[in-house]
Design a protein around this nucleic acid. Structure first.
Lengths: 217, 217
DNA sequence: AAATGGTTTTACCATATGGTCAAACCATAG
DNA sequence: CTATGGTTTGACCATATGGTAAAACCATTT
């Protein structure tokens, strides 16, 4: 299911159509390169109608960022909460983020691109989105790590660094795929390429590395 | 030293000035949002002069991408080659990439942004840049990992996955700093903030996690 | 001094851009 | 049928964009 499908069967609301189109355009062209006309074209409508639904480019953009983050953090939350066992938690997070970003690689790239605009927007939106979850995913993750440390299951680590390593590892492939393929070819490490198998391998590799990295043997 | 300084003392060549300005602009606004006028302004020259030195926006852009990659891969190469001991190699790589990306966070964001345009350009440029190094950094890294595996110093791992986890971990903070700060605040994990100390902590955290992750205890 | 050749600037163009307005459309309610 | 109110459209505007032509500048050579 694509990020903005309202799910409810046949009819796709025009707003959703536009937001899907907007995301495609913004992610492909960047904020400054995105053209309202192109968004309209992608959505199969005309430009004035765009402005009818979303008054300005800025508003449409912010709404896009908001929905993307809400969607993404929602999915992660859904798969991560309730896992009170550290390996399960770790596996769920990795599986979710890797699967999600490889099937929608535009999402992390879009957010990164927004970060490269300075990060003001993302900061306020992030605080909005997290504020609406309770508890926020971020807290759930921190607590999982803290609890595992208390139980002596893992070494003492600073959760924020562990989380960064985890997220960085999970996002990198989807974001940098074209580079990875080139490097893989260069060093003869990627032969005939079965993407699905590679993704499974990837998830396993991340889990093994990070789990061994923190586990008290 | 900034990426494009020609180093040679007082005089800064006009090309370098322009490329610096171009990078600032492209990274802040994206390919489509970057304005030739802004680049000219940043460089303190006028627009026709821009076209005099770099015929078109496309050419200026490609040149920027090329130099950024050449610079970055060069720096990494310089610090990583000759480290035939695995922990040294790992430390050098982490130190280099973390320091480099935190002092020039625009670099990874710029490349990611280029990836979000589709990755065609980056693919061909990457193959160019790696082709001019001999051996290419990528091979040096792979070989370091393979040798450590042969020596039984580390577990059997797929080098390409290890490299991805390594790069992902090293890049993530610089790229996502505004998000991290927000999350850090949310989960009360970042107090009064000493950035320099945090960076050192970060490098240590990456090294410890990844080294324990692969080492044969 | 005159000529040369690289550099810099002024004035400009065709086109594309975000955005608007008023008219047209169209389903539903009275 | 007619009125209502949300939706859709064609025509349009002020402005900004990448790019160019040609003239002016200026240090060096002859």
């Amino acid at each position: 299911m694509a990020p903005f499908d309202r799910g409810s069967g046949e009819e796709v609301s025009k707003e959703s159509l536009i937001l899907e189109a907007a995301m495609d355009e913004f992610i492909a062209e960047g904020w400054g390169g995105a053209r309202m006309q192109s968004i309209a074209d992608r959505a199969g409508i005309n430009k004035p109608l765009l402005h009818y639904y979303f008054r300005s480019k800025e508003k449409l953009y912010r709404e896009t960022v908001y929905r993307v983050m809400e969607y993404f953090f929602g999915v992660v939350m859904g798969n991560v909460q309730g896992k009170d066992n550290f390996p399960d938690f770790l596996r769920s997070f990795i599986d979710t983020v890797v699967d999600e970003t490889t099937s929608h690689p535009r999402i992390p790239l879009f957010l990164m691109q927004e970060l490269s605009r300075g990060g003001e927007a993302i900061r306020s939106i992030l605080s909005d989105v997290l504020g609406k979850q309770n508890p926020p995913v971020t807290e759930v993750m921190r607590d999982n790590i803290l609890r595992a440390m208390e139980r002596g299951e893992i070494r003492q680590v600073n959760p924020i660094h562990f989380i960064m390593n985890l997220i960085g590892s999970c996002l990198y492939y989807a974001m940098a795929e074209p580079m990875i393929m080139e490097i893989g070819k260069q060093i003869g490490m990627i032969g005939l390429f079965d993407k699905k198998a590679f993704i499974e391998e990837r998830k396993e590799a991340i889990f093994t590395l990070l789990y061994h990295g923190v586990a008290n043997e």
